[in-house]
Nucleic acid binder design. Structure first.
Lengths: 196, 196
DNA sequence: ACCTGAACACCGTTCAAGT
DNA sequence: ACCTGAACACCGTTCAAGT
């Protein structure tokens, strides 16, 4: 019968995995470093080696979230057809899916309470997601589906619309049975807003 | 020298006021019922008479936030000129101002961690804000500035765009010096998306 | 009705000491 | 380098008892 070794192996990763699980299942209020440590089987002080504070763990979680969101959007984009309208639909749906499946995490990603230390990294990550919208717009312009002009002039409003819609859907402000129709309306609105 | 009376008078209001102040000044993590009670000069158990739990206080704060946001949007709307474009600009600016001035509160309003008990009320409040967008669209249709169609088909995307832009600006995802230009671009985008 | 006082079961964080 | 054990100064919440 193997007894737990003194060194966990990869406590950092274990903390992040477990933290995200309870974040999704029981909400951010139920996230306790001590309980995490208990579940993983290490002492209450062990997490402090890997995260200077609870907030540092939350920031790491948020950063991971931005990475997954960006990957999801890129994959959806690349899997869609070439036409601008198809790509907008695919990216919007991917954003929505992420928001619904990771509502608490999305909250964390765009919340205001980050450590100044991590803030810079998080803002970068947020802007990297924003730059995906810019890339989408540039393609649309090449196809003639988007009016000419500086990328940000259209990219930012598009990003805002996608994000806003996803947040409203994930926060339950939208009735669940009108999310799908709302997404179609939002995509149509974006296409009109972009059109030459 | 008057000594503090046994009954506070309006402890509930005092708690809400103080809570919102520290929420804005020191962030949601620094909000402690015990510290609030200490600052106000009541015992640690006193708040429980007015709020069943800390979450109940946060929910009340969020509800108050929705009320103030709605009022702010209506006032901005009514103070603006009659033209649809002017009204959209006024409402967008009001939403942005609220978000920047009450970033932590806005976080709270649209966060996922509410009590099921308060959720219904909060969702109603959120939808009431959404109905303001619908009213705006209806006027726009009457003026011929907005294409015909069901209110929600345009109202929801407009709401999403305003909310998304405000959140991005308030969360610092947008560089501070591009917020003003971003707002103009967002308004222009909305007007295009609405146009017949 | 509203609040106090004291208690309970937790927290996050720190720091010497162990492996 | 990584973790434990014990301690510190807090929490939120409950409940009998006071006014």
């Amino acid at each position: 019968m193997r007894t737990r070794p003194y060194h966990h192996g990869d406590l950092r990763a274990a903390l992040l995995t477990r933290a995200e699980r309870t974040l999704g299942e029981k909400g951010p209020g139920a996230l306790s470093l001590r309980e995490l440590a208990r579940e993983i089987g290490v002492s209450p002080a062990a997490p402090s080696r890997h995260f200077r504070s609870k907030q540092a763990l939350l920031d790491a979680l948020a950063l991971e979230g931005f990475g997954r969101l960006a990957t999801g959007l890129i994959e959806a984009h690349d899997a869609a057809g070439d036409a601008f309208a198809e790509r907008v639909l695919a990216v919007t749906r991917a954003y929505l899916d992420f928001a619904v499946a990771n509502a608490a995490l999305l909250d964390l990603m765009y919340s205001v309470k980050h450590d100044p230390a991590a803030s810079e990294e998080l803002i970068d990550a947020g802007q990297r997601v924003g730059s995906l919208a810019a890339a989408l717009i540039r393609e649309g312009q090449r196809q003639g589906a988007v009016r000419e002009g500086p990328l940000e002039e259209i990219g930012l409003p598009v990003m805002a619309t996608l994000h806003g819609f996803a947040v409203l859907a994930a926060s339950g402000t939208l009735p669940a049975d009108s999310v799908e129709q709302g997404m179609r309306d939002t995509v149509a609105f974006v296409l009109r807003g972009c059109a030459p």
